[in-house]
Design a protein around this nucleic acid. Structure first.
Lengths: 335, 335
DNA sequence: CTGGGCTCTGCAAACGGTTTCATACTCCTC
DNA sequence: GAGGAGTATGAAACCGTTTGCAGAGCCCAG
């Protein structure tokens, strides 16, 4: 392994000078600098980041905590985060919590020493734990907002408004919301948003259960949806919507004729199924990139007073799972 | 930040003793050890891994290179790898190459210093580059085999045999194979395997193009498949199969009546679409776990002469996209 | 010619651990 | 009671880098 000393002796200077050539090139004489850099590339020298980190206190790594890589929503975010992080020479530690809130804080702690900061994506932990996590390591929240921590979120309430506007325009007046995990902050935002939007349109809202944010969770929701007598549902996320869509079809329910379905996230699968899912498109990669930018900004100005809380807009993508209500089916199910 | 010296003075011993309590507990006297460990937990001391790595040469990290996180095949592997790595207190650096072979080697080099070893998942680079990567850092190949490097793979040829057996049993005698990336080693294995299996059954094999291993790639393959006059196709992977399935439906082709489709991977989406995709189930998480085990084994015995090359079996999962050939449709398309 | 200020470079001390080597102590045997 | 083996601990060197401080050399003004 080639060290800074090898480069130094090869270039006939001291290690300090070599170091300066990399960290503050302008203060070393041009001729010297050029000679050093030439030897460095010639020897294929790369600074040992662990050694550098030991003294600077910076690791060049950022940590990313997320609930479940198996949900295609998150890999998109990872891609955005990685791309942006690599632009600034940062590496990313990815940690999957398997939707278990109990392990989140522990993972943050165990990762803290090895990263300069963390991005907590859709964390399920409680606000107090979140505050504690933030003391352990500089933290940016992604798809969550809490206690004045810097965060990147999406316009959940506005998204729900768009969904309800769309359903109202189609003529629905009895709509369901299929909830995801009880601990999901986004979920609570969405419920609040859809309540308000439904009220504004005079639409009756049925809130249906809490389900795992997975395809299976959506299947499990089918019975409750059918019993509720609604003509349209908005689901917590696309996976639930897809599971629901499938379970309904297996029971002979025609989507969108008998029931309209709207998801949230716009994961790639949603465009692959038939009928293709109408959904609220969330800017996934972009939100990941923004989170990195925000974190780097926080790292650069540790004492900033007002940590920014960004909100990115969602956009309704109308595909094939929404249509005007089927009067006959509606009256049948409500009967 | 609490250091080893803090623990040492709190416990009334030297830093050396504290260090030994963690690295080789058996050589320090029981009473002393207990006192030290009690102080350590009390102060919430955690060894600085960068500092430790500086002297031991071990980082406690492993690197994972993969082509595209957006393909649901890979997140499953990541989960398996992470889970197994965390059991041995290793962290995982994940790097996505966006299917670009040109950047792979560079990423390996830039990551090398920060990891103890790397898992290269479905790398697209050439054997010579692979050999070079292996000199840079201890390497395990996942879903690829090359030049005696330790590897974990799947039984591609056997998988193709199962697919052809299934299609032959249904009565197909003219089958297509839709190829993925030209640089994919698995792809070449599968072509070779399916050629042999088809020959054994007296089945005519049509090899159709090279396509991106994505949903869009599958859509693009539709025309070629229709022109080929086959009654069944096996696709390089599930995403291509799904794209194909969709594009065919949009052209009015009924799957499986007019055409049978078999994918490879068994990604979660394949069970979510209708008709659900018949596919070769690859043990994704398991292969990830095996790769970690293998890498740790390599790290523990650096001089081992015969690096193991494991092969995990695939299993055909029959769903709804395979059926006996439709005689009329077949003659129509071959006309 | 002297002295003050600049610019560039080297020395040496960190950073937080691990590990080699030496030392002090205990215990046992002859 | 002396000597040797064995055990538990501490002192110090080291890993590869950054950085505060000092010093060398130079230029220019007085």
């Amino acid at each position: 392994m080639v060290t800074i000393r090898d480069v130094a002796s090869a270039a006939g200077v001291s290690p300090s000078t070599v170091s300066r050539c990399f960290t503050q090139p302008e203060i070393v004489e041009a001729a010297t600098r050029e000679r050093v850099l030439r030897m460095a590339t010639h020897l294929d020298y790369r600074p040992n980041r662990a050694a550098r980190g030991l003294i600077t206190g910076r690791t060049g790594n950022i940590g990313l905590l997320l609930p479940d890589l198996a949900n295609p929503f998150f890999p998109s975010i990872v891609k955005g985060i990685q791309h942006q992080a690599h632009l600034s020479e940062y590496q990313v530690f990815v940690v999957d919590t398997d939707e278990d809130p109990a392990v989140e804080l522990g993972l943050v702690r165990s990762l803290a020493k090895q990263v300069d900061g963390m991005i907590l994506c859709s964390p399920r932990m409680r606000p107090a734990e979140l505050a504690e996590a933030a003391t352990v390591s500089p933290t940016v929240l992604l798809h969550r907002r809490a206690g004045g921590l810097p965060s990147v979120g999406i316009g959940n309430a506005d998204a729900m408004r768009q969904a309800i506007d769309h359903l109202a325009a189609l003529g629905h007046d009895r709509v369901g919301f299929v909830s995801g995990p009880r601990r999901s902050w986004s979920g609570r935002q969405r419920v609040a948003g859809i309540r308000k939007a439904a009220a504004a349109h005079g639409i009756t809202l049925e809130e249906i259960g809490h389900f795992a944010p997975t395809f299976e969770g959506g299947s499990a929701a089918a019975q409750g949806v059918l019993l509720s007598g609604v003509t349209a549902v908005v689901a917590y996320n696309d996976l639930i919507a897809l599971g629901l869509l499938n379970a309904l079809r297996d029971r002979g329910v025609d989507v969108p004729r008998d029931l309209s379905i709207i998801g949230v996230d716009d994961i790639s699968v949603s465009a692959m199924v038939r009928p293709a899912l109408t959904t609220l498109s969330v800017p996934k990669e972009e939100s990941g990139r923004e989170a990195v930018d925000l974190l780097l900004q926080v790292l650069a100005h540790p004492g900033a007073r007002n940590p920014p809380a960004e909100t990115l807009p969602c956009r309704l993508t109308v595909r094939q799972t929404t249509a005007p209500p089927n009067q006959r089916a509606a009256t049948r199910t409500t009967a």
